[in-house]
Design a protein around this nucleic acid. Structure first.
Lengths: 136, 136
DNA sequence: GTTGGTGCAAAATGTTTGCACGGGG
DNA sequence: CCCCGTGCAAACATTTTGCACCAAC
């Protein structure tokens, strides 16, 4: 991960466009957001940016390793910066609340799966469903 | 969990119908299946069973605690019997393969989250994304 | 000037809902 | 015989795609 985001794009033969900049800024600003929310945020600045462009851009940015997504709710995935992906989400299936916990909670699990099965866990994508303290 | 499945239904005031029986059998037979796959399986026996009935039935059975679902692929959720839910899924994001591992792998994690945060993990719903040994 | 990226609209996909009829209790 | 559950079709929500135009390089 070296260079600015537009150098990253250029280096791989992609063009730098205002839409791509805006989507990346929106993801950065919003933290966790669905494509729709990102689109809405982008349109605060530039009206007329299309939802399909948002989808295409997110796909590209994910492929380049700049953002990742995870599934916190039922409908849509939520996107966030790959550089901030180093945490796990706990989702309560009763009150729908989302809690973030540090990677140390799953460190043991990650190591076990790596050693025993050679499976490399994508921690940023990990969402744990269950019931939180309040809803017990 | 006592009594047969139709006693369970009756006891809660729901009717026992062939469609509900067929859906439950299909889930049992298929192991992990999407609503579409379940519908296809059901229609092997009874033509004309509608996909919306499958959705409604799965929702009911899940509410009654007979089946659960998890998200293994991008599109649709996959359903399986609640009584067989006691395992974790590893999904490789490259080759899309799904591996099941026993609950002991996450036992430590489950205990940690319970003790430190009072969060009760729904193990049957847990899907871990990453990269498998082959795709490293 | 090329060609990749975008906007728009339409299609594809997955899920839910309204309603009238038929079968389970 | 009552009314829940079903089939059907249409609505809905989300994501993808085809295509002509425009702008990045």
């Amino acid at each position: 991960m070296t260079g600015t985001w537009h150098e990253q794009l250029r280096a791989r033969g992609y063009r730098v466009t205002p839409q791509r900049q805006l989507v990346l800024e929106a993801v950065s600003m919003l933290g966790h957001a669905t494509p729709e929310e990102i689109c809405a945020q982008v349109q605060e600045t530039a009206r007329g940016v299309n939802i399909s462009t948002v989808y295409r851009t997110l796909e590209l940015l994910e492929q380049l390793g700049m953002v990742t997504h995870t599934h916190l709710h039922h409908g849509s995935p939520t996107y966030h910066l790959a550089s901030e992906a180093n945490h796990v989400h706990l989702v309560c299936r009763d009150c729908e609340s989302v809690t973030e916990v540090g990677p140390e909670v799953v460190a043991g699990l990650v190591e076990t799966l790596d050693k025993e099965l050679g499976f490399a866990v994508d921690v940023g994508h990990l969402t744990i469903f269950g019931r939180c303290k309040k809803c017990t």
